[in-house]
Structures are given as C-alpha cells and as structure tokens.
C-alpha cells in the first residue's frame, strides 16, 4: 500500500511538472509570433507581393468617411486602417448592424493585384466597453486602437 501511495504521489508530481512546463512554454515561449490571427494594414503592405493570392485576415479600424454601399445592396466598399497604412476593401457580404465608421473589423479574403482586398467574410471586432446610451464619451482613434488591441505586436 505504501508502494502504491508513493507511485500515486510520484504521478502527481510528474503531472504537475508537465502541466506547469506546458503553461510556462505557452506564456513565455514566444509562440505569439507564429500565431497571427490577422495582419494589420501596415503588415499587409509590407508583405508586398507575398500577400497576393493567399487567403489572409486583415484587421483594423473602418476608416471614417470611407464606407460606400453599392446600389446592388450586396457590395460595399470601405477602407481598413491602423492609423498608418490603409487598405481599400471590397466586401460582398451582409454586415452586422454594429458595422460603422471607426469600429474594429477583421476581414477574411485575398489581396488583389489592383490593390483591393476582396472579402466575403466580414467580422466586427468590438472592444471591452459596454456603455448605456446616456453615458456618452467622445472617442478618439488612438484610444480606440488601444482598446481593441490592434496595436500590440504579440508578446
């Protein structure tokens, strides 16, 4: 029985070590660089020709004043910006009601050679703020970028 007890306790220690090791690796191992959920407009521009043809996600803010809904009711043009670079997007999809100027979006699609990003999957990324209609607070782009975590580059 004491043999059995020892074996169990050894198992406890080994399991805890494995769990702790995996956690530490995930936290400090820097796998963030390989885990890029979306590219920012700047990164997409920097990628240049490598961005063409591949299916990628582009994330940023909808540039104020850039939304242009086509008459057919299905196509929509707008620009995604990160404050530095801006990428024009052609979206053939139904956006959620949250879609508006200055909101965060992640679009999935491909960069075309004419410089447009074409997408059929548009996702609105909102921040962690939940406000009642009356507690109005003016928004500035810098703050928005921060609250949406579009600025961090992966730790």
């Amino acid at each position: 029985m004491s043999q059995e007890r020892k074996r169990r306790r050894l198992l406890a220690v080994v399991a805890l070590l494995i769990a702790g090791g995996v956690m530490a690796y995930l936290a400090f191992g820097g796998i963030g660089e390989n885990l890029v959920y979306y590219w920012s407009p700047t990164e997409l521009r920097e990628a240049g020709p490598r961005a063409f043809g591949a299916s990628v996600r582009l994330g940023g803010l909808v540039e104020p004043g850039s939304i242009d809904r086509q008459a057919d009711g299905l196509t929509m043009r707008f620009a995604v910006t990160d404050g530095e670079a801006s990428v024009p997007v052609v979206a053939e999809t139904v956006p959620p009601a949250m879609f508006r100027e200055g909101i965060g979006v992640v679009v999935e699609g491909t960069m075309l050679r004419d410089g447009h990003f074409q997408t059929q999957r548009l996702m609105v990324k909102h921040d962690n703020q939940y406000r009642a209609p009356e507690d109005f607070k003016p928004e500035d782009m810098k703050e928005l970028m921060k609250s949406l975590q579009f600025e961090e580059t992966g730790t």
């Binding site: 885990l35 703020q129 009642a132």
Partner: peptide, 22 residues
C-alpha cells in the same frame, strides 16, 4: 489568450469599462 495574442474576441472587461448599471 486574448491578452497574449490577437483575437476577434475582446479582452476582459473591468468595472471601468462596463456601465455601473450593467
């Protein structure tokens, strides 16, 4: 994960980012 990596899901809210009534 939402603090370490880019995601669609927003980060944790705090009492400061949520209206007191909520």
């Amino acid at each position: 994960c939402v603090r370490w990596w880019r995601s669609l899901h927003q980060t944790q809210s705090t009492p400061e980012t949520v209206s007191p009534a909520m």
